[in-house]
Nucleic acid binder design. Structure first.
Length: 692
DNA sequence: CATTCGCGGTGA
DNA sequence: CACCGCGAATGC
C-alpha cells in the first residue's frame, strides 16, 4: 500500500527502460525495472504446499540483483498476488513461459544454500514419496539465521577459514574392522575413491571404551575422507551422535543434532556448505547435509523408527541416503545389530553387499541368551514372584550384580492391544483371500459389542478364524503394561541402586558399579564396561503388537539391549524359544532372520517386497480419491477401513517397479483435490512404517 | 490459498 | 447491453 521510505531503490531502477524489454506489470509504484543483461531468467521453486504447483516458475532478474541472484540462493517472489519464499534453481537466457514474467522481488541472501546435488536429491525424494519439492526442501535446508550467516562470510574478515579437510591429509586404519573378513577391502575401496555399498550386521559386545560400532563408523568415514571426498553418518539420536563424534576424535567433523538450537545448528550447517568440513554425523536431517563430493553415506540402526521423518512426505533416512549414494555415486554403509527387511532387500537385489562377521567372532562377542517362556518356573523370592520374574531371570540378575551393572528392559507404554491365539499366542492375522493377490494378513481386533474379531486392514469379520500355527480357534487379548513389573523389581533387590532411563529422562551412561538399570527400548544407558547380565522383559508385549514389523522390531530391540552386555554375559529373554524370532536372538543370527522376514513379506505382499501407499482421511474423501485415481496395472486396494478420529484408511499395493508410477498418480490425484477446495485432506504415505 | 477468469443471469 | 456474482481455473 504505502511506499517504503526507509529503503531507497538502487540507481538502476531509476534509469529509463529500453523499449521492448519485459517489464513487471504491477511495478508502476516502484518505478520501471530492467532485467539483467546476462541470463535474465531465474528458475525458482516457490514455497507452497500445493501439490499441483510443484514445478519451477520463471522470473526476471532485475539488473540490480544480477550479482546476488546466484543458483541456490533464497529469493522472495510475488506469487499469485502474494509474496512467497523460494529458491533460485538456475539462471537461463530465456523462458518457455508464454505470458509475461514478473521480476524477483528480492534476493533474501546471496548464500547459495541449495546446491545442485541437494536440489536433485530433494526432487528424487519428493517423487519417491508422492510429496512436493517444497516440503522436502523444508527438511533439507535449515531456516536462515541472518546473524550467523553474516558472522563468517568466507570473504569477510582477515584470511580465509582453514580448509580442515584438505590441509592435513586424513589417515585411516582398518583396525576397527579387523574382525570382518571383508572389512579391509571395504575401507581400501573407499580410500581409493571407489564406492562400495554394504549391509553391516555389527558384532555385539561392549568392553572398555563402550561399544565398538562408533569406532567402525569413524574408520569408514576416515577412509572416505582419505580419498578426498566427504562423508555423512546418520544415527538415531543425540546419544549416538555423541558416541560417533567421540570416535572421530580429531578427525575434522561437525555433529548436528536437534538440541543445538537454530543458531548453532545453522552455523555448523554453513561450515559444511562452505566446504570447511567434509565429515558430518547427525540425526535424520543430516542425510541432506550439503557435503560436497560425497564419498560415503552411513546409517546406523536403520530399523529405528526415528529415522522416518515426522513431516510430509515422511521420508526415511535410509531411503534418502540410498537415493543420495546412488545419485552421487558414493559408497554406503547400512549398519546395526539387527538387519531390516529393507536392508536384506538391498543385498538380495545386488545393490549392496554383505559385510558380515564370521560365526566364531559372533560366538566370542555375543552374550549367552536364554529363553524363559510362559511356563517358566517363577522365582521363589516373594518380591520377584510378585513381579512375575522367572527364577532363571532372577538368578541371572543376582549373579550379574556381583560384578557390575545389570540391565532390565521393560516395554514402553502405549502399545495397542492386540489379539493372539489363545493357545499358542501367535498374533492373530486376517486370512481373507484377495484374488488374485495374497491373503490380507492384517491384524485382528475386537470391536465393542461384537463377538467375532475383525480385520483392522480389510475390515472383514473373521468369524471362522483358525490359528495357522496350532489350529486353535479362540483368540485372546495380549495384555500389556509391564511397567509395574519394573517397579516391583526394585523390591526384589532391596539393597541395590536402581537407575531408570526412559522416554522422559534418558540416562546416557552407567559406570562399572553394581546397579539395577531399568530402561525402555532405545533408552538403554551405554555401560562403561558392559552389563554383566540383562533381562528382556517385554517379550509378548513386543511380539503381540498388531504391527507388520512386530517380530523385526522385537529382535532389533532385544539385540540393541543384549549387545550392551559383556561377551558371554547371561541374558534372559521372556519369550518362548519355539518362536523363530526368539531363535534368531539365541543364535545371534540377524541375517537369516531378515532374509526370512523378506521372504515372508514377499509372500504376504508387504514392503519392501512390494510398494505400498496408505491414504488416510475423511471416509468420503478417501473413496473419492480412490475413484479419481488411475492406479497402475496390478494395483490392489485394501479397505478402506475405519481408523482413529473418524477417519478411514485405504491401502494400495503395487509391484516394486510400479512404485514410481503409483507415487506419481497419487500426487496427481492429491493435486486435483487441492486445486479444488477439497478441505478434507487425504494424507498419502508411501511405505509407512506403521502398517497397523 | 488468493486472485483472476468467464459464463450466465439480471435489471435498466 | 452493461454489470454483477459465483464457480472454475490458475498461479511465472
Amino acid at each position: 500500500m504505502t511506499e517504503p521510505t526507509s529503503a531507497p531503490y538502487p540507481q538502476e531502477e531509476l534509469l529509463p527502460v529500453p523499449e521492448g524489454a519485459a517489464r513487471a506489470t504491477s511495478s508502476a509504484a516502484k518505478g520501471a525495472r530492467t532485467a539483467a543483461e546476462n541470463l535474465p531468467v531465474a528458475r525458482v521453486v516457490v514455497d507452497t504446499p500445493l501439490p499441483h504447483l510443484d514445478r519451477p516458475f520463471d522470473y526476471l532478474v532485475p539488473a540490480s540483483m544480477d550479482a546476488d541472484a546466484a543458483p541456490g540462493c533464497r529469493v522472495r517472489v510475488r506469487f499469485a498476488g502474494q509474496l512467497a519464499d523460494g529458491f533460485l534453481l538456475e539462471r537461463l537466457a530465456d523462458s518457455e513461459h508464454q505470458g509475461r514474467l514478473a521480476f524477483l522481488e528480492r534476493v533474501v541472501s546471496p548464500e547459495p544454500v541449495l546446491t545442485a546435488e541437494i536440489a536433485g536429491l530433494a526432487r528424487a525424494v519428493a517423487d519417491r514419496y508422492a510429496g512436493t519439492l517444497s516440503d522436502v526442501l523444508r527438511l533439507a535446508v535449515p531456516p536462515r539465521h541472518a546473524r550467523v550467516e553474516a558472522e563468517a562470510r568466507p570473504d569477510a574478515g582477515q584470511g580465509s577459514a582453514p580448509e580442515a579437510g584438505s590441509v592435513s591429509p586424513v589417515t585411516w586404519s582398518g583396525d576397527a574392522w579387523a574382525a570382518y573378513p571383508a572389512g579391509e577391502r571395504f575401507l581400501t575401496a573407499l580410500a581409493e575413491g571407489l564406492s562400495p555399498r554394504a549391509v553391516w550386521p555389527a558384532l555385539p559386545g561392549t568392553g572398555e571404551g563402550g561399544p565398538s560400532w562408533p569406532r567402525a563408523i569413524a574408520a569408514a568415514v576416515r577412509a572416505a575422507l582419505a580419498s578426498g571426498r566427504g562423508a555423512v553418518a546418520v544415527v538415531p539420536d543425540g546419544k549416538d551422535v555423541a558416541l560417533v563424534a567421540r570416535a572421530l576424535g580429531d578427525t575434522p567433523h561437525v555433529a548436528i543434532t536437534a538440541e543445538l538450537g537454530p543458531a548453532e545448528r545453522y552455523r555448523r550447517w554453513l561450515r559444511i556448505l562452505r566446504g570447511e568440513v567434509r565429515a558430518v554425523v547427525g540425526t535424520r536431517a543430516a542425510a541432506f547435509a550439503p557435503v560436497a563430493d560425497l564419498g560415503l553415506a552411513v546409517i546406523w540402526d536403520d530399523g529405528d523408527d526415528v529415522h522416518s521423518d515426522r513431516h510430509a512426505p515422511y521420508p526415511h533416512a535410509r531411503e534418502v541416503l540410498a537415493l543420495r549414494a546412488h545419485r552421487a555415486e558414493a559408497g554406503m554403509l547400512i549398519g546395526g545389530y539387527a538387519v531390516t527387511a529393507e536392508a536384506a532387500q538391498l543385498v538380495a537385489s545386488g545393490w549392496a553387499g554383505p559385510l558380515v562377521p564370521p560365526r566364531e567372532e559372533v560366538r566370542a562377542k555375543a552374550p549367552r541368551v536364554r529363553p524363559a517362556g510362559d511356563d517358566a518356573e517363577l522365582a521363589r523370592d516373594e518380591a520377584a514372584r510378585a513381579a512375575r520374574l522367572p527364577s532363571l531371570a532372577w538368578r541371572a540378575l543376582r549373579h550379574g550384580l556381583e560384578t557390575g551393572p545389570v540391565l532390565v528392559q521393560v516395554p514402553r507404554r502405549g502399545y495397542l492391544p492386540a489379539l493372539a491365539c489363545q493357545h499358542c499366542r501367535a498374533p492373530a492375522r486376517c486370512g481373507a483371500q484377495r484374488l488374485p493377490g495374497p491373503v490380507c494378513s492384517g491384524p485382528l481386533a475386537l470391536r465393542n459389542g461384537h463377538a467375532a474379531p475383525y480385520c483392522r486392514w480389510c475390515g472383514r469379520i473373521a468369524g471362522d478364524w483358525r490359528c495357522p500355527s496350532c489350529g486353535g480357534t479362540r483368540v485372546r487379548a495380549v495384555v500389556v503394561g509391564a511397567r509395574r513389573t519394573a517397579e516391583e523389581l526394585g523390591r526384589a533387590f532391596p539393597s541395590v541402586t536402581v537407575k531408570t532411563s526412559g522416554r522422559d529422562g534418558v540416562l546416557a551412561t552407567v559406570g562399572t558399579a553394581p546397579a539395577l538399570v531399568v530402561a525402555t527400548p532405545g533408552a538403554e544407558p551405554v555401560p562403561e564396561d558392559g552389563y554383566s547380565a540383562a533381562v528382556l522383559l517385554d517379550g509378548w508385549a513386543l511380539l503381540g503388537r498388531p504391527d507388520l514389523r512386530a517380530a523385526e522390531e522385537a529382535l532389533r530391540r532385544w539385540m540393541n539391549a543384549a549387545a550392551l552386555a559383556r561377551p558371554g554375559a547371561e541374558v534372559v529373554v521372556l519369550a518362548d524359544s519355539a518362536v523363530s524370532v526368539v531363535q534368531a536372538l539365541l543364535r545371534w543370527d540377524p541375517v537369516t532372520f531378515a532374509e526370512r522376514e523378506l521372504a515372508d513379506r514377499a509372500e504376504l505382499g508387504f514392503p519392501p517386497a512390494v510398494r505400498m501407499a496408505t491414504l488416510t482421511g475423511p471416509p468420503a474423501a478417501v473413496r473419492e480419491m480412490l475413484a479419481d485415481t488411475r492406479l497402475p496395472d496390478g494395483a490392489q486396494v485394501l479397505g478402506p477401513v475405519p481408523v482413529d478420529g473418524g477417519l478411514e484408511r485405504a491401502m494400495v499395493r503395487v509391484p516394486r517397479d510400479r512404485g514410481p508410477v503409483l507415487a506419481k498418480v497419487l500426487k496427481g490425484a492429491s493435486g486435483v483435490r487441492s486445486a479444488r477446495k477439497a478441505a478434507d485432506v487425504v494424507r498419502v504415505n508411501i511405505d509407512p512404517l506403521d502398517l497397523i
